[in-house]
């Protein structure tokens, strides 16, 4: 057997399992979606945004609501495995543990990306500008990729603590800040219609974040889960 194909099939099986659980239960994505919309409404209300301000802030609001909402999904993806000791079962499987990490990152990414895709038309409607831009979707892929690869690692870490999922935002938000800054800055430039040269360095930065956090996950996921 080809070890690389075995590895990929382990990743794919984890991802497929998570997608299946989500499809049958529909308990993750809808909650994240409603929560992210609530964040948007709360911000509009709390900050008393005037229409001309709103347009400039759309990029920031989009990322803040995505960042908040995705912690729900991240927590759920690991707490789900704590039920019935499913995680122990996965750890006993004769596969490399980083495969579990990759599978989890991919499923978390799919869920948050889906929420992001639904938010785009909603934002276009509320903030009177077309947010369906290919570059913005690309920024979303890169930004959410880096965010969820860090988030999955930290969710696995925080679930080990006594406070469990309460800890995740405290660990994740400050560490993910550079990613959020880069994502907001490039989204803002894209929405303002600036040429790609203006935000290219932020995109490169996001790519670097993806590489860094995935490498961290590869290195430490096993260390975090060992008993």
């Amino acid at each position: 057997m080809n070890p690389f194909r075995d590895y990929l099939s382990a990743v794919w099986n984890i991802l497929r399992k998570d997608l299946q659980v989500e499809w049958r239960g529909r308990q993750g994505v809808p909650v994240m979606l409603v929560f992210s919309l609530l964040v948007v409404f709360l911000f509009n209300f709390a900050l008393q945004l005037s229409p001309d301000l709103q347009a400039g802030l759309a990029a920031g609001l989009l990322w803040v609501s995505l960042a908040f909402a995705s912690t729900l999904g991240l927590n759920r993806s690991v707490s789900l495995e704590q039920e019935n000791k499913a995680m122990d079962g996965m750890l006993m499987a004769p596969v490399d543990r980083s495969a579990i990490y990759f599978g989890k990152v991919l499923s978390n990414f799919s869920f948050t990306f889906l929420v992001g895709l639904v938010l785009l038309p909603v934002f276009s409607l509320f903030y009177q500008q077309n947010m369906f831009k290919p570059m913005l979707v690309l920024v979303m892929v890169l930004g959410l990729g880096a965010y969820t690869s860090l988030g999955t690692l930290l969710a696995a870490l925080s679930i080990q603590t006594r406070t469990r999922d309460v800890l995740l935002p405290v660990l994740l938000y400050p560490l993910a800040l550079p990613i959020l800054i880069a994502a907001v800055e490039s989204s803002r430039s894209i929405l303002a219609g600036q040429p790609i040269a203006d935000y290219q360095s932020w995109m490169t930065f996001l790519l670097a974040g993806n590489i860094l956090f995935t490498a961290a996950g590869l290195m430490f996921f096993e260390t975090i889960l060992e008993e």
């Binding site: 860090l150 690692l153 550079p178 800054i181 880069a182 930065f205 860094l212 961290a216 430490f220």
Partner: peptide, 16 residues
């Protein structure tokens, strides 16, 4: 693990 991951993001933060 947390100390290492945190230190890895510090250069990222300062580059940003």
């Amino acid at each position: 693990v947390y100390a290492i991951v945190s230190a890895a993001t510090v250069p990222l933060t300062f580059f940003s």
